[in-house]
């Protein structure tokens, strides 16, 4: 169960030290409730990538607090020990491109994560198939990624992100290469999945096609986040 979603307060990230120090993130506050899909918008150089890396538990912030569900994963210098396990079990990634492992079939691509967590293969595959069903790509379970269309691949990627039922999904420009119809389809899926699995979803994007669909948007500029009310349009 995901608990209270994602909560970040006062996050700061400083590179370097002394006179050459630069604060990529100065003051970041975010909270996303379970089931909610928010957008994260910012120009390049705004610290967006840095924030994403902190959210993804890839890098360690310099100060502030990060909470995932009920767990504090970072607090002013202290961080949770096993970042990798954290990424594997509690954060779901959806990238710009599907980035499926080309030499594993669709089922194994998704089942890889639970297998890495130590689940027996049969059980992991079962778990994977559930997600594939949810994303309506179960009929491609045995195919290799190269045999899928772009949209199918993206859905498999989303299934992979969700397979461990993580409390948060980080989607980095998931719709950038897609046309309007497909882009909206992806956003709709993300919303469906978010509600179904009670996952908080943060979508980093600058795609004008989907920005109107968000109910809440975080802007980031010069390392500081600003919250904004979104339009919340429907996905037609």
């Amino acid at each position: 169960m995901t608990g209270k979603g994602v909560r970040i307060s006062g996050l700061r990230k400083r590179y370097g030290s002394g006179d050459t120090a630069v604060d990529a993130l100065k003051m970041v506050n975010m909270h996303v409730a379970p089931g909610e899909v928010v957008g994260l918008i910012g120009p390049s150089g705004s610290g967006k990538s840095t924030l994403l890396k902190c959210l993804g538990a890839v890098i360690e912030p310099t100060a502030g607090q990060m909470m995932l569900g009920d767990d504090v994963i970072y607090h002013d210098g202290w961080k949770i020990k096993d970042l990798r396990a954290l990424r594997r079990d509690r954060i779901g990634f959806v990238f710009q491109a599907p980035y499926l492992i080309p030499f594993l079939d669709v089922t194994d691509n998704v089942a890889l994560l639970p297998m890495l967590a130590g689940k027996p293969n049969a059980e992991a595959r079962q778990q994977a198939i559930e997600l594939l069903k949810a994303l309506d790509v179960e009929h491609r379970a045995k195919a290799m990624p190269s045999q899928l269309s772009g949209g199918e691949q993206q859905r498999v990627a989303i299934a992979r992100g969700l397979v461990n039922r993580p409390p948060v999904i980080l989607a980095d420009e998931p719709t950038a290469p897609l046309d309007s119809e497909r882009a909206l389809a992806v956003i709709r899926i993300l919303n469906d999945m978010a509600q179904r699995f009670e996952t908080a979803v943060i979508v980093v994007t600058h795609d004008e096609k989907i920005i109107p669909t968000f109910k809440r948007i975080y802007h980031i500029r010069d390392g500081v986040t600003y919250e904004e009310e979104g339009q919340g349009r429907s996905f037609e």
Binding site: V58, R84, R87, P102, L113, L116, R160
Partner: peptide, 16 residues
């Protein structure tokens, strides 16, 4: 390399 980066990101152990 790309697959290795993805694997690392999604939480594959170095050992694997």
């Amino acid at each position: 390399i790309r697959e290795i980066a993805v694997l690392k990101l999604i939480g594959t152990k170095n050992r694997t």
